[in-house]
Write a protein that binds this DNA or RNA. Structure first.
Length: 881
DNA sequence: TAGTTTACTTAGGATCCGCGGT
DNA sequence: ACCGCGGATCCTAAGTAAACTA
């Protein structure tokens, strides 16, 4: 077979060139290095990861040759990127190509990816790299025009139009929060952060794509929502019209580097337990997916709802059994039982505080502090360059707790008179020192730490070794609440063994308490829960902090799978549910009407349920807790949302809704003040209780998962056309982004964002200058004149017109690529793609799509996602959510 | 309440990339 | 052409806060 052998291959699902290799799902990875954003470089390939062939069940794919061939480059049409890239290689033959890196890595890593099947596709790497180039080009043309427009100006076109053309749903989101910086009065010291606030920032995510409906051509699609799918078309909101320059299709930016490298696999401490090795994760294999056929009952539309439901129900039942089977296969699980045997070593504590002796100043005088006092002062000093310094609440809470430790009569009385600078600087120096350590020293330290922690990293659950998630007890510090949290700045005291309750199998040895002279608070043997340990949260004593298994464990994987199965079940009920709530928009019963409208919003906008919150928590809302002031009706039928959701992320969106909904909202607002609950007859338990009547296990959050996964599945299937791997990855990212926008997953703009953009602009300008010169030279060459001297005064080689044309094409391509990269960067600066990938997108959609389109799964999932989604790797290629 | 899932930020390692030296 | 180097970027993985739900 392949020379290289599976180990190195990427897990591509592609069919291999050789028939022999079938596709194993997992094969090794490699990533192609290709696509970098900058188009120029071709990076070398990277590594590979091995896979074991064990599970390769999957289907084999049919050989596709065409693809491959094409992949290999297609220079002609496209200008190849920069010369530099060239070296990387287009020329390489596929087979040959495993780069050295890959090879070496391969051997290095014995570990195989969990999933793995091996499929060797040798060329994957090559392909990808080629592809990148190629796709660049190809994509270019498509986008090219767009780009031009956008150029730098902001585009006037609504994002929407750009992006989601097709989607009808839209939601938007966006937030603006951006924290940052400034240091409190204290000297900011070295790093002043830059905040970039450009204008764009302010645009809500949602707006980004929402616009589309209107924007453009729009209208045509307006009906979008009518039907059953509620997704709303969004109106635009542009609130800001700023410029966003985003490209419609994202460019390749994302994948720049190959993901899973070998190295990690082999060396990482984490790797899979040997126990399991070989066998695939438990969960995974068992059930394989049912292929789903989707039932559509579209016809039922005319049937009365009640009946429909019934039908569904029955259907569901059937299904359920199916599902259930899958879900609980774990050995031993019975009623609520989560495990049969559980062995672990407890938790590890942070090292005791080491006093540094650096004196802070109080009214310009050095102050002596006890180690305990100094520890807390240091916690604060270290945060001088954070935005918390601008929050009075933070400082007040800190001072209150610190004062308790200082004692009533301490010299230090007022925070305003404190100068923590010496400690801050000491800390910066320590950081610097650490950074300066040689790589070997760092490595030694790491290994040392690893050695100490190793025993805590694993647990043995029902005989299988599983990774533990958070086995390190949280160290003391100042509470960093998000948003305007009333408790920010409070001291989070050190947790002791006597605070910790351990949960472990009855026959397992009780972990010894790591701190001499201390003992655990309690030992339990509760197999109906999955936690290994917990302690009361020092900030909120009524709450707890738990130690669970890692996401890659089969326990978590199983529940993850169940979550997606439940969401898929919603597909069969959704029409009936929509019809039911639509009917209730006009119900005489106010509660019923509120439930209907709330359900509609959750369904259409993917809002969270919205539990009640206490006064000692940040003031954020979800659907059930929306206030009158958060939803403004704008006739004729637009609702303008503006509120702080989870993590105090702002949600802003203007959505066109069905008239009855609009009217109902107006009516719910009557007689209330802005801060009153919009849905006064509702709370999450009532809502969920109602939902549960519609479908077993249905809760508000299921709609989010459903919406997200459905969107991904539809977009992937609608928008994946031919093209090389890189282009396909772009399609994926585009879909991923759409989901992130729907779910309002945001991130703060990085401090260096604006700098990076301007740097890109400079490069682009530079290239444009070169381009002009090339054009001049071309014109001269055509007339038989020699080229002008370069700006540096050196004469250039006399080339024939064709050669100049080629150079022009190359440069143009480079410019276009950079423009696209810039757009994408701008476009994604406030959008977080990761959250939806980790929590909302059924991995089987991704895996099946990768198999169908021969995209190496590593292009989409990094190492930890591969581990987390091990249960989904053997899905059949035809799987549809 | 207790238990579990979802979320964003950050630390730090991995890469990229230009540059001078060999 | 190859290597080492340092700064800029990219990305993963850790950390833990903040939701949701049984």
């Amino acid at each position: 077979m392949d020379e290289i052998d599976d180990d190195d291959e990427p897990i591509v699902f592609k069919r291999s060139k050789t028939a022999s290799k079938q596709n194993p799902l997992n094969s090794a990875t490699k990533k192609s290095s290709s696509q970098m954003h900058d188009g120029q470089s071709g990076k070398q390939v990277s590594e590979v990861r091995s896979s074991n062939g064990q599970n390769s069940i999957s289907q084999k794919v049919k050989p596709v040759q065409s693809t491959k061939a094409s992949l290999l480059k297609s220079p002609s049409a496209s200008p190849k990127v920069s010369s530099s890239s060239v070296k990387a290689s287009p020329a390489v033959s596929p087979s040959a190509s495993p780069t050295k890196a890959s090879i070496s890595s391969a051997k290095a890593s014995p570990v195989k990816s969990p999933v793995a099947n091996s499929k060797p596709s040798t060329s994957a790497a090559d392909q990808s790299k080629h592809s990148s180039q190629q796709n660049t080009t190809s994509s270019l043309k498509e986008e090219k025009q767009l780009i031009n427009d956008s150029e730098d100006s902001e585009d006037d076109k609504p994002l929407i139009s750009r992006l989601s053309a097709g989607l009808s749903k839209q939601s938007s989101n966006h937030a603006d929060r951006r924290p940052n910086t400034s240091s409190l009065g204290l000297p900011p010291v070295q790093k002043p952060r830059v905040k970039c606030e450009d204008s764009d920032d302010e645009i809500p995510l949602s707006s980004k794509f929402q616009l589309k409906p209107n924007a453009g051509p729009s209208t045509s699609k307006s009906h979008d929502f009518d039907e059953n799918k509620p997704k709303a078309p969004k109106l635009q909101q542009n609130g800001s019209t700023m410029k966003d320059n985003r490209i419609k299709k994202s460019s390749t930016v994302l994948n720049k580097r190959p993901v899973g490298e070998v190295k990690s696999s082999s060396q990482s401490p984490i790797k899979r337990p040997k126990l399991n090795d070989g066998s695939s994760p438990i969960v995974g294999k068992q059930v394989s997916v049912k292929a789903e056929k989707k039932v559509n009952d579209e016809d039922e539309d005319n049937v009365p709802i009640s009946q429909r439901m019934k039908n569904k129900k029955s259907k569901k039942v059937v299904k359920k059994s199916k599902y259930s089977k899958s879900s609980k296969m774990l050995p031993g699980s019975g009623e609520g039982q989560k495990w049969t045997t559980l062995i672990h070593n407890g938790v590890i504590f942070p090292p005791p505080y080491k006093p540094h002796g650096v004196k802070m100043l109080y009214k310009a005088q050095k102050v002596d502090l006890t180690p305990e006092q100094e520890e807390v002062a240091t916690m604060f000093a270290v945060m001088l360059d954070t935005d918390y310094m601008n929050k009075p609440k933070f400082k007040e809470n800190f001072m209150n707790d610190w004062r308790k430790i200082l004692g009533k009569k301490h010299v230090i009385q007022r925070l305003e008179d404190c100068d923590f600078t010496p400690i801050y600087e000491w800390h910066q120096k320590e950081k610097e020192k650490k950074k300066q350590m040689s790589t070997e020293e760092k490595k030694a330290l790491r290994e040392e730490k690893l050695k100490q922690e190793e025993k805590y990293m694993w647990a043995i659950v029902d005989g299988l070794k599983e990774k533990v998630g958070n086995f390190r007890v949280e160290p003391p510090g100042l509470f960093r609440g998000r948003g305007e949290h009333p408790k920010m700045g409070k001291l989070k005291r050190r947790i002791q063994p006597r605070d910790i309750t351990i949960n472990i199998g009855k026959d397992a040895p009780i972990p010894e308490c790591p701190i001499p002279g201390e003992r655990w608070k309690e030992i339990r043997h509760d197999n109906t829960v999955t936690w290994l340990a917990f302690w009361n949260d020092p900030i909120n004593p009524k709450e707890f902090k738990y130690v669970f298994l890692a996401a890659s464990s089969s326990l978590k994987g199983q529940s993850d799978k169940e979550k997606y199965e439940k969401s898929r079940m919603l597909k069969d009920y959704i029409q009936g549910i929509r019809a039911a709530y639509t009917k209730d928009f006009a119900s005489k019963d106010i509660t019923r009407r509120q439930i209907a409208v709330a359900t509609y919003l959750i369904d259409k906008l993917a809002l969270r349920a919205g539990n009640e919150k206490d006064d000692d928590e940040a003031d954020t809302v979800g659907c059930c807790t929306l206030k009158v002031e958060n939803v403004e009706p704008m006739p004729p039928n637009i609702l303008k949302f503006d509120f702080l959701g989870k993590d105090s992320i702002r949600y802003q969106n203007e959505v066109e809704v069905e008239l009855p909904v609009f009217k109902a909202i107006q009516q719910f607002r009557i007689g209330k003040s802005g801060s009153d609950d919009l849905f006064d007859k509702l709370d999450t338990s009532k809502l969920n209780a109602h939902l549960k009547e519609l479908m077993p296990g249905l809760t508000a959050k299921v709609f989010r998962t459903y919406n997200a996964s459905t969107t991904l599945d539809e977009m992937l299937n609608r928008e994946t056309k031919g093209g090389d791997v890189t282009e396909k990855v772009v399609v994926y990212q585009h879909a991923n982004k759409e989901v992130a926008i729907i779910c309002n997953h945001q991130r703060t703009v990085s401090k260096s964002h604006s700098t990076q953009i301007s740097r890109l602009n400079e490069k682009i300008e530079e290239l444009k200058g070169i381009l002009d010169a090339l054009r001049t030279d071309l014109a001269r060459a055509k007339k038989g004149k020699p080229p002008l001297k370069g700006s540096d005064g050196k004469p250039k080689k006399n080339l024939n017109p064709e050669a100049w044309e080629r150079k022009i094409a190359q440069t143009t391509a480079k410019i276009e690529k950079m423009e696209r990269d810039k757009e994408t960067k701008e476009d994604l600066k406030t959008v977080a793609l990761g959250t939806s990938k980790i929590n909302y997108l059924d991995p089987r959609i991704t895996v099946a799509w990768c198999k169908r389109h021969e995209v190496p799964i590593e292009k989409i999932f990094n190492k930890s996602l591969l581990a987390k989604f091990a249960w989904a790797m053997d899905v059949i290629p035809s799987f549809r959510f």
